[in-house]
C-alpha cells in the first residue's frame, strides 16, 4: 500500500503538472481538491482516465470520483480493491 501511495503521488504530480510540488509535500490524508492541493474538475476527469489507463478501472459516473479522490489514502484503498491491472 505504501508503494502504491508513493506511485500515486508521483503520477498526480506529473500528469496534473503540479510544478514545485514534491512527493514529500503530499500527505496521505490531505484533501486533493478544494483547499488541499487545489485540484479542479478537469483534474478529476484526468484522474478518471488514469484509473482506466493504469489500473483498468472504469468509472462511468464522474460523481463517483468525489469520494474516491478525496485523498491519496482513499484513492489507494479504492485501487487496491478494484484494480484489474
Amino acid at each position: 500500500m505504501g508503494e502504491l501511495k508513493t506511485e500515486l503521488k508521483n503520477k498526480i504530480i506529473t500528469s496534473l503538472n503540479l510544478e514545485d510540488i514534491s512527493v514529500e509535500d503530499i500527505n496521505d490524508n490531505d484533501n486533493l481538491f478544494g483547499e488541499g492541493l487545489g485540484l479542479d474538475s478537469i483534474d478529476a476527469l484526468e484522474l478518471i482516465v488514469m484509473l482506466d489507463k493504469d489500473y483498468g478501472i472504469k468509472l462511468t459516473d464522474p460523481k463517483e470520483g468525489k469520494k474516491i479522490f478525496e485523498s491519496i489514502e482513499t484513492m489507494a484503498k479504492f485501487i487496491e480493491e478494484n484494480r484489474t491491472k
Binding site: 503538472n17 478537469i42 483534474d43 476527469l45 484526468e46 482516465v49 482506466d52 489507463k53
Partner: peptide
C-alpha cells in the same frame, strides 16, 4: 486514452 486536460 484522450486526456481531458489536453482536450480542454
Amino acid at each position: 486514452y484522450p486526456s481531458p486536460a489536453n482536450f480542454v
